[in-house]
Amino acid sequence: MTEKIVLVNEDGIRTDGRKLSELRPIKLEVGILSNADGSAYIEQGKNKILAAVYGPREVHPRHMALPDRALLRCRYHMAPFSVEERKSPAPSRREVELSKVIREAFEPAIFLEKFPRTSIDLFIEVLQADGGTRCAGVTVASLALADAGIPMKDLIVACAAGKAGGHLVLDLNDIEDKEGEADIPVAYMPSFNAVSLLQMDGLLTIEEFQQAINLALEGCKQIYALQKEALKAKYQAIKESTEVTEEE
């Protein structure tokens, strides 16, 4: 077997130079695809993920339509070139499961009852994966939904915490996810203090788990602020462009 990788050094610094409770650099952009009703892009560390929303629109196939609310459909998908070894483009069992839990993370936030007999289709495409793609995917999908003008109770924001190299860490990267002791992705509605996605793999005592959840929620709150900024930035840009035309 290969040598054990040092995930956290004596100074509490991680493989990518971060402190234990530090997020990776995050870049968010809103409204970047012209065909979609709403779209957004995220870079979180080396993760590069696109999200797009179509809808509310007519449901196909029609028999899937719900009489009292919109049908939310979600597809989380990884590009074949997004990982080290080529991934088959056919949806894997992992992708099917993640699509389900991400959909369930958004259902409590969207006012689906406002759009009966329609569908809202949410697509998340991972272009490059570096650990924590489901969380970054949720964060960016939330912006795409807001960009599409879909009414929501709150933005959903997601972040993982876990244990790597014997320490509790925030926002695990790929190596920490694979070689670390535990990973807990959490999706959260900050205004309601409500968790809408929660998974864990690895081994943690209940005390460690409790601390890790709190760490993840702190991370969520930081990203939540970035989400709001990104949304405002889009409209600020539109405002500035109109101001310029008026001057002319």
């Binding site: 839990v101 369930e104 809408s196 929660l198 864990m200 793999d201 690895g202 081994l203 209940i206 788990f209």
Partner: peptide, 10 residues
């Protein structure tokens, strides 16, 4: 120790 968690439902 906890070894797996899954939340489900909307």
């Amino acid at each position: 120790r906890i070894c797996a968690i899954q939340k489900g439902g909307s």
